[in-house]
Simulated scan of single mutants.
Amino acid sequence: MAPITRFAAFKYKPGTIDVQKRQVLDIIVKLYEENARMINYGPFGGKNNNPGGHDKGFDIGFTVEFKSKECRDEFNADEKHAQYIMAIRDILEDVFIYDFERGDYGY
């Protein structure tokens, strides 16, 4: 069972205040901590500081490594994760989630 790395990025809607942004991050970090048995590392992340201008307007990004696809799928199906998604929809303009297996370039 190969690990699965997740990269996630959030773009907040205009008018979202810093307190709301912090709450969103605190909740997802806690959710990953509660499911630590499924996680090899993470979440780790922060604000973009790349000067290239290719951030597409995303405010925050983070990575986490699941122990396996099965662990990732179990995490995604967790009721608390579903509740989290519903709770943040009103303040997010866009979300980018990209899961991959290291070294699997598809060819």
Rank of each mutant, 00 (worst) to 15 (best):
N76I: 10
R37P: 02
N35Y: 01
D59I: 00
M86F: 08
Y105T: 02
Q20L: 10
A82F: 03
F62R: 00
E74C: 02
P43F: 09
Y12S: 11
G15R: 06
K80F: 03
N48C: 13
I27S: 03
G42S: 07
A36L: 05
L25V: 08
E65T: 14
M86H: 14
Y105P: 01
K47Y: 13
E93R: 05
L25F: 03
G52V: 10
G103P: 06
M1R: 09
A2N: 12
A2F: 02
Y32S: 05
V29W: 13
N50K: 00
N48R: 05
K47E: 15
E101R: 07
K56I: 01
G53T: 02
E65I: 11
I39Q: 05
D59Y: 01
A2D: 06
L31H: 00
G57N: 04
D99F: 06
D55Q: 04
I88Q: 11
R72L: 07
Q23R: 12
Q83S: 11
R22G: 06
V64G: 00
Y84G: 07
R22P: 03
D18E: 11
R22W: 03
R37Q: 13
K67Q: 15
G61M: 04
H54M: 14
T16H: 01
Y107M: 04
A82R: 15
E33I: 01
V24F: 05
V19L: 03
Q20I: 13
F75T: 11
Y41A: 04
D94E: 08
D104Y: 09
E65W: 05
F75A: 09
T63N: 07
G42D: 05
Y32I: 05
Y84S: 04
F10R: 05
I17A: 10
F44N: 12
E101L: 06
D59F: 05
V24Y: 03
V19F: 06
N40P: 01
K11Y: 09
Y98G: 01
F96W: 14
G45I: 05
G57Q: 06
E93M: 02
P14C: 02
H81M: 15
F62M: 05
K69Y: 00
P43L: 10
E93S: 11
P43I: 04
F66W: 13
A77E: 12
E65Y: 02
P43C: 05
L92I: 13
N48Q: 11
D94K: 11
K30M: 00
E93A: 14
N49H: 06
A9L: 14
Q20E: 15
C71P: 08
I28N: 09
M38N: 04
N35H: 15
A82W: 01
K21T: 02
F75W: 15
L31M: 02
I27A: 09
I4K: 12
Y12A: 12
R37G: 12
F7Y: 14
I4A: 12
D99S: 06
R89A: 12
L92F: 12
Q83W: 03
I85Q: 14
I28L: 13
D73V: 08
I4E: 11
G15D: 10
D59R: 03
F75S: 07
G103E: 01
G52A: 10
K80V: 00
